[in-house]
Structures are given as structure tokens and as C-alpha cells.
Design a protein around this nucleic acid. Structure first.
Length: 225
DNA sequence: ATCCCGACTG
DNA sequence: CAGTCTGGAT
């Protein structure tokens, strides 16, 4: 049992090493850290939605409501602005929940000044914000050393054989988070997301272009091209 | 397990 | 046209 655990740990270490060689970008939120509201909204709305549409909608929201508190008087306008994303009613609840939270806390800067634990607790009170989204927010704005697992990462972990097929994201996170070296978790998260989008796609994975070739026994996908 | 729901890709 | 998009709540 001890041997198995050590080998798993070693595999994860190698995988992360390869991933970080392959993905050298700095976290996108570092460039936008001067605009925490943009970061928050982007993360809040990123679930199950197209990135370009998210960028567009977030830009529009910020232009119309430079201070999120201004949204509170215009819930209808907020919902309308969110229409292109789909799930507009749900997302409006989340965005307005964030606006309310910031207002209650005395503005963004005060909120960002909260200890991560407290911020997390409050973020989870926002309807539509669960553990995963809360962790991504903490990772981006509090430099929390966490490893949020989404559908991409769960799929990759399963294909790598790190977890059993069909494992839930939360299970995958509990297993992998402690195995990823401290300080590398945010970048490992981003690298795996990127890998999931471009290479280890849900369908027709591009195994021949994968930086994890040799560390993975997933059946070589029938790459159409 | 199922629903939420629009844009975008092949 | 079907599948997918950094899930969450019921």
C-alpha cells in the first residue's frame, strides 16, 4: 500500500513537471490583478460557458457598472446583459450576490483584505458559487495554494489512470491536491485546463501531440488529422 | 439524476 | 445537427 502511494506520488510529480514545461504562460489573472472585479466576474461566469462570450459580457458589465454595487439597483439590466451567456437568471443571481457581498463588506478592497478562510466562507453564500468556483477565486486573488478540479481535469486524471473512470471532481481534488508540490498548484491547474481544451479533449483527443505521451496509457485517440 | 440555456465548433 | 463550454442546486 505504501509502495502504491509512493508510485502515485512519483507519477503526479512527473506529470506536473512535463505539464509545466509544456505550459509556460503566467496565470492570466496576474495581468488583470489591477482589476479584481474583472477577475471575479470572469471566474464567476466561466462555468459551462464560452470564454469569448464571457470576456465580452464581463467587459459590458464593467462598463455599465464600474462599481458592482451599482448593479443592485438594476437587476433587470444585469440579467439582460447576461443573456448571451445563457442561464441568465441563475447567473444574474450569482453576479448580484457578489455585488451584494462586496457592498456589505465595504467595497472590493475591503473584501480582498479579508483572510482567505473568511473570504471563502462568504463567497460560498453566493447562490451559484460552489466549492470549485470559490477555490478558483481564492487561487487567483488570495494566492491560495489550492488545486481546483473541473470537468477537464477530472477527465484527464481519469485517462491518466490516476483515478478510476467516472471519478467525481471533488474526489479527484482530494487525491491530487496534496500530491502537487506547493507553489505549483495554480499553474498546474491552468496547464491541465489548457491541455483539456486543446489536446486531451473530451472527444478525439490529440494523443500524438500530448506532452504527457509515455506517462499515459489512454488508448491513442483516432486523431482525424 | 436532472435541469439550468445561449453561443460556438466541427 | 450534436456536442461542448474551468458547475451548482434541487
Amino acid at each position: 500500500m505504501r509502495v502504491e502511494r509512493r508510485s502515485l506520488e512519483e507519477r503526479v510529480r512527473l506529470i506536473v513537471e512535463r505539464l509545466l514545461e509544456w505550459y509556460r504562460d503566467e496565470p492570466w489573472w496576474r495581468r488583470e490583478k489591477a482589476e479584481p472585479l474583472r477577475v471575479m466576474l470572469s471566474i464567476l461566469l466561466s462555468n459551462r460557458s464560452n470564454r469569448r462570450v464571457v470576456r465580452r459580457v464581463v467587459a459590458e458589465l464593467l462598463e455599465r457598472y464600474p462599481r458592482l454595487e451599482d448593479m443592485l439597483g438594476d437587476p433587470d439590466g444585469v440579467r439582460k446583459a447576461l443573456q448571451p451567456l445563457g442561464l441568465a437568471a441563475l447567473r444574474a443571481r450569482a453576479v448580484l450576490g457578489l455585488a451584494r457581498l462586496l457592498a456589505e463588506t465595504g467595497g472590493v478592497e475591503s473584501f480582498l483584505g479579508l483572510p482567505a478562510e473568511e473570504a471563502r466562507r462568504r463567497l460560498l453564500t453566493i447562490p451559484g458559487v460552489g466549492e470549485k468556483t470559490a477555490d478558483v477565486l481564492l487561487m487567483a486573488l488570495w494566492d491560495a495554494d489550492v488545486f481546483p478540479v473541473d470537468t477537464h481535469i477530472a477527465r484527464i486524471a481519469s485517462r491518466l489512470g490516476l483515478v478510476e473512470p467516472g471519478a467525481r471532481p471533488e474526489q479527484v481534488r482530494r487525491l491530487l491536491e496534496p500530491l502537487i508540490p506547493r507553489g505549483l498548484r495554480a499553474r498546474a491547474h491552468l496547464a491541465m485546463i489548457q491541455l483539456g481544451r486543446e489536446v486531451c479533449r473530451p472527444r478525439r483527443p490529440r494523443c500524438s501531440e500530448c506532452p504527457l505521451r509515455g506517462l499515459c496509457s489512454f488508448p491513442r485517440g483516432t486523431e482525424a488529422g
